[in-house]
Nucleic acid binder design. Structure first.
Lengths: 250, 250
DNA sequence: AGCAAAATGTCGGCTAATTTACACTTCGCT
DNA sequence: AGCGAAGTGTAAATTAGCCGACATTTTGCT
């Protein structure tokens, strides 16, 4: 059911992006399924989701596009339904730092339900095309008030997110660049890789510079390490795909 | 009102610790005020807190004591009412790493409401004496279900915690050891310092090794930097107290 | 097809900070 | 009061990995 919808939608995206015509595709049912599919909203009944749908909007974007979200108007919570984006913050000195990589099914934006607009962040689309749902934070908060079970799920979700953040940072700090790269590849493979025995293939939508930023090292070091891994037959790397020969060897 | 309770309690702690006699002090009213004082529980009515009190227990401990909490039995959430503790994790290689410094009023333990007992963590008491409240995670979850407002507050609380974690880690990664130390001292001063004009006095319950671990550097480097600051008249340091001469100069 | 821009590859010099090693000081305890 | 342990001070050797400075390759675009 969902699959059909996504396929239809996908086909259309190629033709039309970001015109008022977009609105045509925002019929209730489609929105219903987009939310229904997310594990956070599985506890809600059809009517409850319908209710949430009223406050839902969604957006499509193509590779390389930049989406400002922390800025300006009313605070929102976003749900990435398809594709990959990176959250980038502008440093005081003007240089980019990757704050987060958001994958299909992830929520992002002001997850804390707390408005604070001092951070200058934006999202950049990494994959070929993305679909993003959004709803007003205040409306979402209302929904949580009326659905305590959802509130608990959401709390657990935020908690889980925190645990991940802590873990990855702990890695960054105590391990050296090589270990960090290995760990990153393992995580990435686990989350998105297609496994075949002990061989894992990952669709590579990141540049070496992106990878370097994620594991907090210089581009040059990342390049060196990746090449070293390739000569050691641990991975085979190109711009489209990374194949980990034996995930257990990492 | 609260103050009186705390004073009474404090006086007794010195005499008796960790005997069954402890139970004598766990009368409802005391527990009520301990919880009432926490901002998270301010939204609850007296009767609601009374209800939570049934599931509350509390514990006292003295400096240097080690409290295991992630281990063994039923998952709990803890609230530090008085004093300071550090959360320490044992690395694979057997060496300690400080995960967190918990201060008066902070919650700790499995904040994610999710049980995962694989992590080997314990708490070590830093200040002269501490008072810790705890309740069963499952009971707390029930309470959240019945009080959506509390659930939202709690989510915001966890979110705020995450934001702090992210910020401090961002510092650790992008700045050098000196900047990290300065930032740490600023934060510490803000949270616990006693300000007098631009001079701030902090009660120093940390060893230089602790500080080193927090700002993720070696003990030697931390020592050097602290001494350098002292010769530069930025701070005056001893084992009991740190005085920042001019907080605006850091 | 052809050009500019982005991404990747490679090389030393440089520096902050870890490591190792040891002396000294303070604390807690009997 | 006196001993061992914990905490602090200092200095030299070593190193991971950042940075600048290129060359080369690949991509996207018209």
């Amino acid at each position: 059911m969902l699959k059909t919808y996504q396929k239809d939608n996908h086909a259309i995206v190629k033709l039309i992006t970001f015109t008022p015509t977009d609105l045509i595709f925002m019929y209730e049912d489609l929105k219903y399924w987009y939310l229904r599919d997310h594990k956070l909203f599985r506890t809600l009944s059809y009517s409850q989701i319908k209710q949430l749908c009223i406050i839902t909007g969604f957006k499509k974007a193509a590779k390389g596009e930049i989406i400002y979200f922390s800025s300006s108007d009313v605070p929102r919570i976003f749900l990435l339904k398809k594709g990959n984006i990176k959250i980038v913050a502008i440093d005081d000195d003007g240089n980019e730092t990757i704050k987060d990589i958001i994958q299909k099914g992830d929520l992002f934006g002001e997850l804390t339900l707390e408005t604070d607009n001092k951070v200058e962040e934006y999202a950049k689309v990494l994959s070929d095309d993305v679909v993003i749902c959004s709803f007003l934070m205040s409306d979402f908060e209302d929904l949580l008030l009326r659905n305590p079970t959802l509130a608990i799920s959401y709390t657990k979700f935020v908690g889980l997110k925190m645990k991940r953040v802590k873990n990855s940072y702990a890695n960054l700090i105590s391990k050296d660049a090589k270990t960090r790269l290995y760990q990153f590849l393992k995580d990435w493979a686990e989350q998105e890789g297609v496994r075949n025995g002990n061989t894992v293939a990952i669709e590579n939508y990141l540049t070496q510079n992106d990878i370097a930023q994620i594991i907090c090292t210089s581009r040059q070091t990342a390049t060196q390490l990746l090449n070293e891994m390739e000569t050691n037959q641990l991975i085979s790397y190109n711009r489209k795909e990374i194949i980990i020969q034996d995930i257990t060897k990492l």
